[in-house]
Design a protein around this nucleic acid. Sequence first.
DNA 1: TTTTTGCTCATACTTTAGGGTGATTTTAAT
DNA 2: ATTAAAATCACCCTAAAGTATGAGCAAAAA
Lengths: 156, 156
Amino acid sequence: MTLNFWLRNRSVILYGVSLAVLLLLMKWLEWRFIIVDHAFELYAGALAIIFTLLGIWLAVKLTKPKTTTIIVEKEIFVKNDAFILNTNELTRLGLSKRELEVLQLMAEGLSNHQIAERLFVSLNTIKTHSSKVFEKLEVERRTQAIDKAKKLNLIQ
Amino acid sequence: MTLNFWLRNRSVILYGVSLAVLLLLMKWLEWRFIIVDHAFELYAGALAIIFTLLGIWLAVKLTKPKTTTIIVEKEIFVKNDAFILNTNELTRLGLSKRELEVLQLMAEGLSNHQIAERLFVSLNTIKTHSSKVFEKLEVERRTQAIDKAKKLNLIQ
DNA sequence: TTTTTGCTCATACTTTAGGGTGATTTTAAT
DNA sequence: ATTAAAATCACCCTAAAGTATGAGCAAAAA
């Protein structure tokens, strides 16, 4: 407890002790070399300087450091791969759900045969769907359809 | 409020009190051992207090606050149309310049015939190129090639 | 210089894609 | 209940795509 008190307040205690020592020293000096002219002014000046420095030291030591928080916004460019289906365009073109499904699988590189298997329908059905898709998208080839559909955000 | 004031300034108050105690101690010491003018000590004490306070004030006023910079990441979603060709993948796959050119035109929806016309070569040449492209990309269809090439950033 | 690589083209053949037409069934809307 | 759209499937035919093989030529690399 006593040790704790010492640790917590050693700055103050040290200060008091050193002040006492300083004053005693000055007194002794004064007593020793009292001959000096304007002794009082010098003494006061020294005191002022010393205690100003002491005050600065105290403030720096004992006050919490000022902190200014600067918030800087760092712009991070993120690739917008969050696909948002263009519903407007979809309804405008009149593409049905199934047709869009076929178009999506086309874009993934599947052949008509593979799409038929995937959707559990016949090859002819897929042909009919794809033909309708090309008609509605006003294209002639699946590659064109894919390109256009991607540009219109109809598929991913 | 008063308690808060105490907590915030206990260092300074403690210092003041201890200074007062110290001065009393000195007075007592003076009265006990040394015979000097009383006014001077009071003056010195006042000086000490004033200039210590001045030092504290100076320090508080003039110290630069520590700045903490907090960087907040602000996400900006950008359409990533800044295409960067994946040269590593390109050389890894061993795709030639011409083959890449054909692949690019494929992705734009052109037929082999159209590509041939565009590049002023025969249809058979384009067929050869496309076959090589499929081989190197390890795919069977142009739609697959397009899909893979886009995912690998080989084409736009 | 020789070799390799890239680009070109051809022929023959197979597979896939696409167009046209028509029909049935299911689902949704009027 | 009727109509309309969507989804399904078939057949026929043509066009395009893709495979395989061989070959000529020019530029770059060994």
